[in-house]
């Protein structure tokens, strides 16, 4: 177990990514990031809007190609299928096919991983129970509230029982009860030894859940520390001060 923990689930070296604005002006979205996240760690990437958090996740998932540097996810280059099989992803404002029911959506997601038959249906049953969506499973996702979509998105991210989970603003759109449920799910995943990488604006959630945090500001990783070294009491106010002191004006 210890040997496994010492392996890097994510290793990023000198990552650079240029992006274009709607007016086709190029800017440096990610500028020389270095990251190393060990297996089993819950890592919180925090930063103001437009800092490059979502771009970082897209690069780690292979949705975007880097302009410089190297990315290794689960020992493989980003986007490689062998790694993607072991990854779960919950995007910010999950994107759904409104013509599908919740169950059909999860079935579709499972089939993309090559899962099928009773094994997939059993897994879907477990996940619907986990996110408390059993009674809405036969309704089309087009009729779901934002919170329900977020729960279904979480179930979809877990369909392949991933070793590494990317969560982009997982608490977004959830009411306090929904946030509490989502926290419980993340804690349960942590206890199972999953590696979790998540972006969030909500510092109380980061303080509560993360082992390590990084501050991203204007595409640069300006600080990175173990959470308990910042605030042993997991105090959100202390984390907020830490965050504010490391963002570039």
């Amino acid at each position: 177990m210890n040997a496994q923990l010492s392996q890097a689930a994510i290793k990023v070296t000198n990552l650079v990514k240029r992006r274009e604005t709607k007016l086709l002006k190029s800017f440096l979205a990610i500028s020389g990031i270095n990251l190393e996240i060990a297996e089993g760690v819950t890592y919180g990437l925090i930063g103001p809007n437009g800092a490059g958090k979502t771009t970082t996740i897209k690069l780690l998932l292979g949705l975007l190609k880097p302009d410089g540097g190297e990315i290794k996810v689960l020992g493989k280059p980003a986007g490689e299928h062998e790694a993607l099989r072991r990854i779960g992803f919950l995007p910010e404002s999950p994107y759904f096919y409104s013509h599908l029911t919740g169950r059909e959506y999860l079935t579709f997601t499972g089939q993309l991983f090559g899962m099928q038959g009773p094994a997939l249906q059993n897994r879907i049953g477990e996940l619907l129970h986990l996110v408390s969506m059993e009674n809405k499973a036969e309704e089309r996702t087009g009729t779901y509230s934002k919170g329900m979509l977020q729960r279904l998105g979480m179930a979809a991210a877990l369909v392949n029982d991933p070793d590494l989970l990317f969560l982009d603003e997982p608490m977004s759109g959830l009411d306090p009860l929904g946030r509490m449920d989502m926290r419980k799910i993340i804690i349960a995943l942590k206890e199972k030894g999953k590696t979790i990488f998540f972006n969030s604006h909500l510092l109380p959630d980061v303080a509560h859940l993360c082992d390590k945090v990084g501050v991203l500001s204007q595409g640069k990783l300006t600080a990175e520390d173990d959470l308990l070294s910042i605030t042993p009491e997991r105090n959100a106010t202390v984390l907020e001060e830490y965050f504010l002191s490391h963002i570039e004006a």
Binding site: L61, G62, L63, H81, E82, L84, R85, I87, F89, P91, Y95, F96, Y97, T109, L112, F113, G114, A156
Partner: peptide, 13 residues
């Protein structure tokens, strides 16, 4: 609709 994110974060060519 960005549903392609669902597909291309899975092992789909």
């Amino acid at each position: 609709k960005k549903t392609c994110y669902l597909i291309f974060t899975k092992p789909v060519r």
